[in-house]
Design a protein around this nucleic acid. Sequence first.
RNA 1: GACCCCGUAGCUCAGCAGGUAGAGCAACGGCCUUUUAAGCCGUGGGUCGCAGGUUCGAUCCCUGCCGGGGUCACCA
Length: 523
Amino acid sequence: MQRKLSDQEIRRREELETLRAKGIDPYPYEYNRTHTAEEILARYSDEDADALKNVSVAGRIMTIRRMGKATFCHIQDATGRIQLYFRKNDLGESYDLLKLLDIGDIIGARGFVFRTRTGEITVHVQQFQLLTKSLTVLPIPKETIEDGKRVVHHPFRDKELRYRRRYIDLIVNPEVREIFRKRAEIIRVIRQFFDERGWLEVETPILQPIYGGAFARPFVTHHNALDIDLYLRIATELYLKRLIVGGYEGVYEIGKNFRNEGMDRMHNPEFTALELYVAYKDYNWMMELVEQLLLEIVQKVFHITTLHIGSHEIDFSPPYHRIPLVEAIEQATGINVLSASEETLRSSLEQRGIEVEESAGKGKLIDELFSEFVQPTLIQPTFIIDYPIELSPLAKRHRSKPGLTERFELFIAGTELANAFSELNDPIDQRQRFEEQARLRAGGDEEAMVIDEDFLYALEVGMPPTAGLGIGIDRLVMLLLNQESIREVILFPQMRPDNPASSTATPQQQEASSPSGQEVSEQ
RNA sequence: GACCCCGUAGCUCAGCAGGUAGAGCAACGGCCUUUUAAGCCGUGGGUCGCAGGUUCGAUCCCUGCCGGGGUCACCA
């Protein structure tokens, strides 16, 4: 069923029929473009105006100013906007076709480049063609230049509409287009950085019979032919380590993970993660690598080493501070979490007005103290190192500090950006850690890890000493581009389906159409 | 999941101590051959998110629902 059309939409459909009646295909097959808007603006010079006397451009009409027998419009292509000038004298009868064009239509135009009286480089059109008729009204705002700055009047900024109809957001908001270009650049630099070092980019299963590598609830799906439930991966870790066992000495994967949890400005149910594993290295080496990687990203993408993030100037020049987790908490709170009992931690949290669940173990209490009193203070890039063993079931025991692991997390502007460790490769120890997780799971912790026997077998085959790293790409992009919501850096963030019928449907209908609230089955 | 805020024209927003609505841009008609938030004259456009309730009367008050945003919880 077609939705109800507005009068403007009806008029455009009528125009479409008029065009067809005149023998004009409103959706032709191709167009031979010689120049982008950017190229014309860059190459035009008043001294050599003839150099661009026969160009063709194509793009979407963003503004139009009709003045009787002359018309100006701006078209927008992927590189920017260029003004077109149409004159009845030059175009004759085809000039009248302009009447059937609207803002939002895509056209191609051929002509010569000149500079107008007001100084704008413009294509004087000698021939033009409709390339695509637009049947909807785009929320294209008016713009002015004030003191050399672009001022947009009544910009399209309704978040719901922007995310649901990202294509419109991209058309009308150039800064949004720029975010996703920068995102691609950041990822490109990361790939290049790893590839230069000889590490192998791989793809591991998204559909997994046993999910692992992180604490999270998974999405469940079903494979019909095998008649088994499968899980969308929550991490790539356990498969990538199998590849280190297999003899690759450096592997990385950039891809989507899926976690069946709440959504907010820092979380989307599917998000892009980077994981890297390098043989014969430890977490100390990995910290230096992360320093180099971030420096390279900001230098190559932004051409500087200091970025303005929130109200801070963040300096990405290494080395970054390294503070053991226990010390950081002690400095902030005076509590030594290693010597303190679980009861002491609990009561000191409560004294500070922080509520904690009854079931919270020592690990969780430590984490609570950290995220409440330390994390917000970590503005400049800081490695927090040496995490308690109960928080890190896949990390190797610290070589000299009992009860801790060789693990670090990187914080910038109060945000966790990376997580890494000297990977646990002792299969006996790993089995014990999994068994502890199984106990937590049996005790009701739905995010505790599931025992992966095949992964344990791989460790029994033998994994060399290995350093591993995980970085949330969306958060990295958010941070570097100074965006406040993860939805601003994901092209199509998850939204509740926008089904107009659902607001009037009966409860029974809604029940029937909703997915069965399937719970994660115990392994 | 809890709480708070929001939903009015294609877009951005006003408004109504309860009497079914306005502006700018967009659109339509007219004039206008270097304009650029073009200009001037004129015109049309709305189930005021959905469903109930209160009321003589609801866009406005109440309840529920739908959708979004924010905070918290969760996300170790």
